[in-house]
Design a protein around this nucleic acid. Structure first.
Lengths: 222, 222
DNA sequence: AGGCTAATGTCAGCGTCTGACAATTGACAA
DNA sequence: TTGTCAATTGTCAGACGCTGACATTAGCCT
């Protein structure tokens, strides 16, 4: 491991990697793009893994070497967006109260969502896929589990910021649970609505976040 | 439909039904019991549908006539408990504030959880299965989706109680989302803990509910 | 008793996913 | 450049979840 990686963690590694590595990345990207394209066009259940693999001209077995299962490829762009959001939270000023930091992070992340994923898929495809996820029972289930995992990470980060022991103080998990609930409500309403743009989702999120009021929102006394 | 059913909704139908019906109920119960027994003993993934069917001496095809998929049988006792809880909410006094009603319903339901399910499986098995669900990724995902569906029903009931239009006022969904988040945190801590009893879970839930404070907790002005 | 219908069993087949082994291809040094 | 090594991929077989179609069994009702 180089010094760079050791310090910066998951920074973008030097692009001119070996031919092998680049080929792998291209195959992976192609699989994601073809999969999301097929999922959004004809539905998740009506798309077989064979179809996806065939579209990229690899074997089915190769698909399962890149993705543990059919669901995983459906969340590829979500994964990128979530990493983006989490990084945004970690970048918030230390003095900010927990809920304010979460609010700032999500609104900022929604604002610059394009940058984080456009090298993988277009923002339009990403958003269409989000709708497919919300309206496909099996995908919705996985989505909620992934969300729960993210909330656990968020709670730990909040606890770290506040200098609290996450196993002794329930407040980090509670404020994150509240926050997550609000995000879900906003996202669901957006899915059911007409407007497609990311901005609409951003505004809707901000509006709903204002409803939770002062609970656990101010600075915590230790 | 008789007058009885029309008034009482899902009341216990007259037990002396036809032989056919009783046989079906026995088969279903046997499938649930065998399934939960196997799931809790050797794990969900390591149990095949064939095993379950074989234990009850029916064909695999028959299993899938009783349950749409392998997951469904895993949630049979949860289903009963959830119905019990929802009924408890509907029975709360009309004057109670939303969060207070939810709180009263869940604590009451946890208290009398046994009655609702002990005719299907033992409370111990029910609780052991809950732990399996929380610790099995695929089941956890489904559990969270089911929870989300229940929260939608709860939000509608809250809106009804308060005389609000659920599509116009976000508060019913928000208070339920908050509530659901708290329940999840409590349930998760209980799963990770040592204590097995239902009482522990009940107390843990009550304790965490007290943390959400006054937000959306008081009576709402229209 | 005998016909009707619901419940069950059997069979074939699709789709997801995995292990094993062989074939291919990039990486790297002699 | 070429040969060796290791990583990537393809092929094959098979387990498991799940479904439609059809035959068989068994409760119900006159």
């Amino acid at each position: 491991m180089t010094t760079d990686e050791a310090v910066a963690g998951t920074t973008t590694p030097p692009p001119p990697a070996g031919l092998r590595e680049r080929k792998k990345q291209r195959t992976r990207s192609a699989l994601v793009r073809s999969a999301l394209e097929l999922f959004t066009r004809q539905g998740y259940e009506r798309t077989t893994v064979d179809e996806i693999a065939e579209a990229v001209e690899v074997s089915q077995r190769t698909f399962f070497r890149y993705f543990a299962n059919k669901e995983e490829v459906a969340f590829a762009s979500q994964e990128a967006a979530e990493c983006h959001f989490f990084a945004a939270l970690c970048g918030r000023p230390a003095g900010e109260a927990p809920l304010a930091a979460l609010r700032g992070a999500i609104l900022g992340a929604w604002g610059s969502i394009g940058e984080a994923i456009e090298q993988l898929v277009s923002p339009e495809l990403h958003m269409r896929m989000y709708r497919v996820i919300e309206s496909t029972p099996s995908l919705l289930a996985v989505h909620l589990r992934r969300t729960a995992e993210m909330e656990e990470r968020l709670a730990r980060e909040i606890a770290r910021r506040e200098g609290l022991d996450i196993d002794a103080d329930p407040r980090p998990r509670l404020v994150v649970a509240m926050f997550g609930g609000v995000i879900r409500v906003a996202g669901k309403l957006w899915t059911e609505g007409e407007e497609d743009s990311v901005v609409t989702l951003r505004d809707l999120t901000a509006f709903h976040l204002d409803y939770v009021g002062p609970t656990l929102a101010e600075k915590w006394d230790k």
